[in-house]
Write a protein that binds this DNA or RNA. Structure first.
Lengths: 341, 341
DNA sequence: ATTAAAACTTATCGCGCGTAAAAATTTTGT
DNA sequence: ACAAAATTTTTACGCGCGATAAGTTTTAAT
């Protein structure tokens, strides 16, 4: 351990027997110095656990190694999971990621971007709130900081968008549901927080029409990010009112489905795909909890891995080599067959 | 909008017709300058949207306004929720909180603390991994940075610990379960990630003995933070093996209970507190999803609000006025009666 | 109106590191 | 072994702001 406290790079350079500029070079890129000197520095590092002052470093670099990751709602395990995934990839690439949550609040989203700006990040990975986002604020931010959007697109903004192919999602699961039973009704929020919802609805309608079925959309009132509660309350209301015209319900997302399953339970409706069941329920996203609902939820899995990998790769390739790729990169969903439909 | 780009405080002081030290004083504390000059600065701020360089600021302050918040597993909505709560309170107090997740990994936890150290934070709010934490690393960190532990205690470490009164939890829910039906068996992980589990087990045993019942503990194999999966798999095994000696199961926490409910469903056991039900299940924590299980989970709610408030208040009072409070502050749980028990 | 206190200005230093240019040294290829 | 190439050292400046001391102006109090 350090017997003498090292307080700055000057002192550290002294104990390692080198000059400060050389040590500085090492910290910017360990491979930029001769292997023998690199070894000397790393040996000294073992002895004295010195770390360059991060504030002094970033004051003089016009571009830091920071990467901002902003998700709309971190208490949603879906975003927690994809945030973690993205974070890890940035870390592996040698950057300093920080995860922020907008907590469903457009003002907070704008504030996060503002304070992110003063961190002078290399780039930002932003999953915007969507419909309620302050578009002007985000547009202004994207002008100054290389930003890749993911999960939810804001047309025309950001370097690229990486997300799921929502029409494909709807097509795939509608096909499955029609093949295996009655054609589904579509259950969604009337004023969805997320623009993906609109694409999913449209995908549902198209898929139904292609198969010669009448689309049937049931909408839930309510604002905000308490999807489960909205799904439960409005699901119960719609069930009572007989708004569902078939015994199959496709929910716009898993969290809504989780609430809807709760409503079915309260009303004594047995959910499942076997003979004795009264209703079939399917979701979309493969939310981490959908495996543990009763019954387990049949859903369409987003390709978390591909989305996070592609988002990070795109951002880094843009900031490092300047090469911009397509405007949108979409990944297909995978049908997860469980017992609810 | 800025017609002339302001690049530093010198220039900003010029356009606001003041000297740099005065402007500097303003940014450190807006109330430290005369109201009239404050108005002039804020007027100029409207015109030129200048923000002091955060790196230059923090380089010269020995203490920044940063506060680190570290939770063990952010994909767990419980921690996401309490993290958000704590974050908001720090923000309201005029600090710059950042939330980090250890992702269940002790090495990552230690790394986060290391990098946190170089951020020179005013203080840190740490919910440690617990049993698997690198105790030496945390101890070393606590020596240098004012740290308040919450959720999970590490005896002897940190300025204070703020959390739940786990023995009281067990006593309260055991009392309720015994009053309303058969005495509960206790379902827990054999090697729990979190030391609270041990206190809960002990609380269960004490509460049962006080009522003259034989404690009965059923343990689940498995490591890590995939509690639902462990609860489901091991719950099914224990049910098949007839390890539960009564029709009532108290789970060590809600996530385990959610998995256990899933196992009950798979085995065709109707869960609930009415005549027709085969088994009663209760949890502990009031996990955000426990309202939406089927049936909704009866549980003991942690006082999120009191815990987060107390943790932040304690940290700030220590760093601001130096006054240290008790070693541990514990809050009682509130029984949430739903349909599962 | 007088005076002390409060607020501001001017001037100057230091923080820890990035960065650049020129000189000195070491390594590499042949 | 020798020149060329690569690396390191020396020297020096700048970044944007915190902090301090001494002098000047404004405000508040009697």
């Amino acid at each position: 351990m350090a017997v003498t406290k090292i307080k700055n790079m000057e002192e550290f350079a002294a104990v390692s027997g080198l000059s400060r500029p050389t040590v500085s070079k090492y910290f910017n890129d360990p491979n930029s110095v001769r292997p023998s000197t690199r070894a000397r520095i790393e040996a000294a590092l073992e002895e004295h656990d010195y770390r360059p002052n991060i504030y002094a470093i970033n004051q003089n670099r016009r571009l830091t190694k920071n990467i901002g990751i902003v998700v709309p709602y971190l208490a949603d395990p879906f975003f927690a999971e994809i945030g973690r995934n993205v974070e890890q990839r940035c870390l592996d690439a040698g950057f300093h990621p920080t995860v922020y949550s907008s907590h469903g609040d457009p003002e907070l989203e704008a504030e996060i971007l503002e304070s992110l700006r003063s961190l002078k990040p290399t780039g930002v990975l932003l999953a915007p709130l969507g419909r309620s986002s302050d578009r002007a604020a985000i547009e202004k931010f994207c002008k100054d900081v290389p930003t890749v959007l993911f999960d939810s697109a804001l047309p025309g903004l950001g370097l690229t968008f990486v997300g799921s192919d929502n029409p494909q999602f709807a097509r795939m699961i509608v096909d499955y549901l029609c093949r295996s039973g009655q054609p589904p009704c579509f259950f969604e929020m009337k004023t969805p927080a997320n623009p993906n919802a609109n694409r999913r609805r449209q995908g549902y309608i198209t898929a139904m029409e292609r198969l010669g079925h009448e689309p049937r959309i049931v909408q839930a009132e309510g604002e905000g990010w308490q999807f489960e509660e909205i799904g439960r309350k409005e699901g119960a209301r719609a069930l009572s009112a007989g708004e569902f015209t078939t015994n199959t319900v496709l929910c716009s997302n898993d969290r809504l489905a989780i609430g809807f399953l709760s409503a079915c339970y309260e009303m004594g409706l047995r959910v499942g795909r076997d003979e004795s069941a009264a209703i079939r329920v399917a979701g979309q996203d493969d939310h981490p909890f959908s495996r543990y609902t009763c019954p387990p939820l049949t859903t369409l899995a987003q390709d978390y891995d591909a989305i996070s990998r592609s988002a990070v790769e795109n951002l880094l390739s843009i900031v490092e080599s300047g090469e911009k790729s397509e405007n949108a990169i979409l990944f297909e969903g995978r049908l997860i067959m469980r017992d609810s439909a």
